[in-house]
């Protein structure tokens, strides 16, 4: 059974008096411990889908089923409670946190809101969350703006896994990171997936990263899924025009094998 099933999702926006479909009849599903990547150029609707799935915005039509439940039917306190299982990591980890926050507060919030640990237990929970993502527990006392970009993205992942979610939406989560840090964060994500069986909806315009981490890929163009399937197979032999363009645009390193 799938964790997330999205059917016929549509969202229109108005631009200069004209109605256009940002997301147009999109359907997909994600199995437990699976990574589905959404690839496409900017403006293809990837981020809108992420926000729809998280109910940060509401669709015009369509259905979102999360863990067997009609996710669009939830509201108020029930919706807030269910959000524990469906988390998100943003592209820019600096913008994703309150500029006044400390690491401890950022991690304390989900534990407090979902009543996961008592006030007395929380500091030790926060310490173990930090260690889980490869950070030192002492980092909890630091302000978000004091730590490095890579550390911040680890904190964002720690916050996302604090409520033991079954699905995390990663919206360009590694695009702003240095290449050396990016590899470590991707390793961490794969590690968490294997141990906690978390599913990922991985949004990126970079087919190299998608090929490295995703099981399946759906390629978007102008709000529609134009092709989908096994990530390596699709990237090796794309059928759609936009898929071909994305592959052709990837820089190639013609390295002699030096090792």
């Amino acid at each position: 059974m799938s964790v997330l099933t999205v059917s016929n999702l549509t969202k229109h926006y108005r631009r200069g008096g004209e109605r256009f479909a940002a997301v147009d009849d999109v359907s997909f599903e994600i199995a437990p411990a699976e990574t589905l990547a959404l690839a496409g150029p900017s403006g293809s609707g990837k981020s809108t889908i992420a926000r729809l799935v998280l109910r940060l915005i509401e669709p015009d039509t369509g259905r979102i089923e999360f863990e067997g439940e009609d996710f669009l039917a939830l509201s108020g306190a029930t919706l807030r409670a269910r959000r524990a299982k469906l988390q998100m990591v943003f592209q820019d980890p600096l913008a994703a946190f309150n500029p006044r926050a400390t690491v401890a507060r950022v991690l304390d919030d989900p534990l407090r809101i979902h009543d996961i640990a008592s006030r007395a237990e929380r500091p030790s929970r926060i310490a173990s969350l930090l260690e889980r993502v490869g950070l030192h527990a002492a980092l909890a006392m630091r302000a978000i703006h004091e730590i490095s970009g890579g550390q911040r993205q680890r904190v964002a992942i720690a916050r996302a896994i604090a409520t033991r979610p079954s699905l995390i939406v990663l919206d360009e989560a590694v695009s702003a990171l240095d290449v050396s840090v990016r590899g470590q964060i991707l390793d961490l994500l794969l590690d968490l997936q294997r141990q906690e069986r978390i599913s990922y909806l991985f949004i990126s315009h970079d087919l190299g990263v998608i090929r490295a981490i995703a099981h399946r890929v759906a390629i978007l163009d102008a709000g529609r899924i134009v092709e989908s399937g096994d990530a390596r197979a699709v990237i090796a032999d794309p059928q759609s025009a936009i898929g071909k363009a994305l592959v052709a645009a990837m820089p190639k390193l013609n390295r002699e094998t030096t090792l």
């Binding site: 290449v179 990016r182 590899g183 970079d206 190299g208 981490i213 099981h215 990837m250 820089p251 190639k252």
Partner: peptide
């Protein structure tokens, strides 16, 4: 660290 289309997937 470069993840090209010929790199070995991390998976």
């Amino acid at each position: 660290a470069y993840l090209g289309l010929d790199a070995q997937p991390l998976l």
